[in-house]
Design a protein around this nucleic acid. Sequence first.
DNA 1: GGGCATGGTTACCGATTGGATACCTTGGGA
DNA 2: TCCCAAGGTATCCAATCGGTAACCATGCCC
Lengths: 114, 114
Amino acid sequence: MEALRADMFEEICPSTLLPFRVGTDKWAGMVLRCLEDGPRRYSELRVPLARISPKMLTQSLRNLERDGFVSRAQDERRVTYELTALGRSVLGPLRAFCDWAEEHWDELLDARES
Amino acid sequence: MEALRADMFEEICPSTLLPFRVGTDKWAGMVLRCLEDGPRRYSELRVPLARISPKMLTQSLRNLERDGFVSRAQDERRVTYELTALGRSVLGPLRAFCDWAEEHWDELLDARES
DNA sequence: GGGCATGGTTACCGATTGGATACCTTGGGA
DNA sequence: TCCCAAGGTATCCAATCGGTAACCATGCCC
């Protein structure tokens, strides 16, 4: 499992500019993608999600937990978040959207400009 | 092309309860689905979207137009909205989510309850 | 030329979202 | 014992979202 790249999600990123959202809030989709490759710690998630505030990361994670997408495990001072089976099952549709966005990115930008 | 059923989207429907959204606003995903089978008029769209206000329907349509998903054609007193190629292309991922939601609906309700 | 249907627009308001910032708590390690 | 890192909370505020309700413009039809 590789480390997560800093600022995986650019300032102009699909989840903010593009017309769809996964999860109840703005960040949930990105959080899910960060958990694709295995469990991650809170502080580890803050690296790729460079612009998230601690408040929003906690809120996103709590929502995802409440909806059964993510499980939280605490081991002394270590907290790790991991996708549940339900969480993994939603990666399919989620990736379908990401692929779509990548493919149609230029068309979308063109449409927005005019 | 069949007429659209009144209140196609129940009060508790995936797009409001479930953790994803297609389109910039609450209604956009439902509007797209209403246009799946061909062009529709403004008043025709208000039938399946029983709880939408004229303001929000206009806003959703304008957003979808701006993003290039929908085109608007005016012919005297008739206004019709139709999916563009881009709009049709997003139906795939959109349906992937709807299918996912249908399949995992019970799990989601269970997770929310506890 | 009066009314009616269509396709909106406008004003107002409350609720929700999300950002910034400061603070807190617990458990090690030096 | 003091400090520091991890993993958060708390507070405040601005902007956006979405609902209600009233109103408007255009073009037909009688």
